[in-house]
């Protein structure tokens, strides 16, 4: 009699459970999040997400420390909740321009799209899974820092007064964060679905947000056009919509200031939804290299 056991059984049949389409989608969502954050990837792929997280979180952490140290109301006036969305907007723009194309375009150039579509995923579930993954990473940037700021101010005694007020302002922050994450995710995915090269997609996304902002601000402030033209800048619309949702007006362009809040929120949502629908449409037509 011997205690020897053979552990290496080699390749053999698999008789366990198979998760089907839902398992494939779940797996790709997790993969997207890991890839977006640069996890298990070389150091150069960690720079952009790390920078975006620092941009998003550092002011919130710094202001929280400042508020805890001084415990003075004027600290909250230095950086309000509405204003903070201008900071997270910058981090979201970085994510949108660098990280989203890094996920979408490389699938087409490194042959992974062909392999994904040879799995239980379809073109629709592929776009859905990639979209959810990018959206969830965007949420870390869009909701996390503002939540840190709200809770920091609250514990320092300069935030909302009671428990329900804290819940209400956190709810508003979540709503604004979801809206902005959806907008940046949708626009970034659509623009990344057009070229095959990561660099071209990154420049296109950054240029789209920046140029539309410059053009609409220029048009509405230098020549007399309708205020509604200002809705042509998704970045400005989202910033103004977030301030309205947070009930914390800050520096805005006058044309957007004169538009109703519901129109701003609906426009921001429409940017996200239409861009995601366009991404889906685009991926139904992409020829896959096999």
């Amino acid at each position: 009699m011997t205690d020897t056991q053979i552990h290496d059984l080699g390749y053999r049949s698999y008789t366990g459970e198979r998760a089907g389409v839902s398992g494939a989608v779940r797996s790709l969502v997790v993969h997207t999040m890991r890839r977006s954050l640069g996890l298990k990837r070389p150091a150069r792929h960690k720079i952009a997400p790390a920078l975006a997280l620092v941009i998003a979180y550092a002011p919130a952490v710094a202001m929280t420390g400042f508020a805890a140290f001084l415990r003075a109301d004027f600290v909250a006036d230095l950086l309000g909740y509405g204003e903070y969305f201008a900071i997270t907007g910058l981090a979201l723009l970085l994510f949108a321009a660098v990280v989203a194309p890094g996920v979408m375009t490389t699938d087409r150039t490194n042959g992974m799209l062909a392999l994904y579509l040879a799995s239980p995923l379809t073109r629709t579930t592929y776009v859905f899974a990639r979209g959810v993954g990018i959206f969830l990473v965007m949420l870390i940037v869009a909701v996390g820092p503002i939540a840190v700021l709200i809770l920091g101010y609250t514990f320092a005694g300069i935030g909302p007064g009671g428990f329900f007020e804290v819940l209400e302002i956190l709810g508003r922050a979540c709503f604004a964060g979801v809206l902005s994450a959806a907008l940046y995710t949708g626009v970034a995915m659509f623009l990344a679905s057009i070229p095959r090269r990561w660099g071209i997609a990154s420049v296109s996304i950054a240029a789209f947000f920046i140029i539309t902002a410059i053009v609409t601000v220029g048009l509405t402030e230098s020549i007399e056009v309708s205020d509604w033209v200002a809705l042509g800048s998704p970045d400005e619309v989202m910033g103004e919509a977030a301030e309205r949702i947070m009930n914390d007006p800050a520096f805005t362009i006058p044309a957007l200031d004169r538009l109703p809040g519901s129109a701003l929120i609906a426009t921001a949502a429409a940017y996200g939804v239409v861009a995601l629908a366009a991404t889906w449409w685009r991926y139904q037509r992409i020829r896959v290299e096999r």
Binding site: G20, G111, M112, A114, L115, A118, T122, R290
Partner: peptide
């Protein structure tokens, strides 16, 4: 398609794979 592809293994012709 998804049910069929769950039971199929596929090796494409191209050699492009994620390098990193």
């Amino acid at each position: 398609g998804p049910e069929v592809r769950a039971r199929i293994g596929y090796s494409p012709e191209h050699h492009h794979l994620p390098d990193d």
